[in-house]
């Protein structure tokens, strides 16, 4: 039984003609201990998928089974408690509270769990030591470098001993040296048995993952297990196909990306036509998922 199991999960925004499909009947199983890298162009639904798995969002359709329990229909309070106990978030923009020092920031999830101050600070200090910030406990976040802040954020994600760590572009705002430190840290967590889901735009980082999921237009189009330490061939292909994002691409939006996306199957061609009206579907249309 997988730790995370999404079954035909869809997420729709808006009503009627203005309906936007963020996730289109996505099914995904993640075993405990996997390090999954999620890739895909902007607007492909990566973050929505992460929010779904992280219990911040609830699916419009479909079911989500987290360690044998369906959590798709839980009430906000129960989801908050699961989030607190089972899931650690690491964000691209770090998201530490600027008015609290590093130690208090890390101890915050424990406060919401109702643990007494002395114990939670002790606990937070221990986790900070683990991420190598033992000497920065009483610094305010603004006094730290980006890499240090991100490590503090990882410490915060770890403080409740979560089963799942969700990292949404954790190195997106970091220079390459800091990125390396942060990735090594995540990698070490993976080695010690944590399940990690990481969104990234950088194909190089897939070398830390043992599975790469490629999303497009609200669907998972590729899902590949890769050996640790190797850049996924899929990611490499993507890198060749999108050498860099130009301003023109940004202006043209998703439809420009559609033109260059590697489409070979029949169903995919159909989708390309429908994608001329990008991201907007008046009716929910069952789309055959691309073959792996």
């Amino acid at each position: 039984m997988p730790l995370i199991s999404l079954k035909d999960v869809s997420k729709l925004y808006g009503f009627g003609d203005a309906t936007t499909v963020a996730l289109d009947e996505v099914s995904l199983d993640v075993e405990a201990g996997e390090f999954v890298a999620v890739m895909g162009p902007s607007g492909s639904g990566k973050t929505t998928l992460m929010n779904m798995i992280g219990l911040l969002d609830r699916p419009t359709h479909g079911d989500y089974i987290l360690s044998k329990k369906s959590v798709a229909k839980l009430r906000p309070n129960q989801r908050a408690k699961l989030r607190r106990d089972r899931i650690g978030f690491v964000f691209q923009s770090f998201n530490l509270l600027p008015k609290l020092n590093v130690l208090d920031n890390v101890a915050l999830p424990l406060m919401y769990k109702g643990i007494m101050p002395v114990r939670r600070l002790k606990r937070a200090a221990a986790v900070l030591e683990r991420v190598g910030l033992a000497d920065r406990q009483y610094f305010m976040p603004r006094a730290l470098s980006g890499g240090q802040i991100q490590r503090a954020a990882i410490a915060r994600a770890l403080v409740n001993d979560p089963q799942i760590i969700i990292a949404d572009e954790p190195t997106g705002n970091l220079d390459s040296t800091s990125s390396l430190v942060v990735m090594e840290l995540l990698s070490e967590l993976h080695r010690t048995g944590n399940t990690i889901l990481m969104v990234t735009h950088n194909p190089e980082l897939t070398r830390y993952a043992d599975r790469v999921v490629y999303m497009h237009d609200g669907s998972i189009v590729h899902d590949q297990h890769t050996p640790l330490g190797e850049v996924s061939p899929l990611a490499n292909k993507a890198r060749q196909l999108f050498p860099r994002r130009t301003e023109e691409d940004d202006l043209a939006g998703v439809s420009a990306i559609m033109e260059t996306f590697p489409q070979k199957t029949e169903t995919a061609k159909k989708r390309r036509k429908s994608a001329a009206k990008p991201k907007r579907k008046t009716t929910r249309k069952a789309v055959t998922r691309a073959k792996r």
Partner: peptide, 16 residues
Amino acid sequence: THEIGIRKAIGATNRQ
């Protein structure tokens, strides 16, 4: 608002 988002993401309930 952003702070509220962060607090909720790390597990604060509505009541908290």
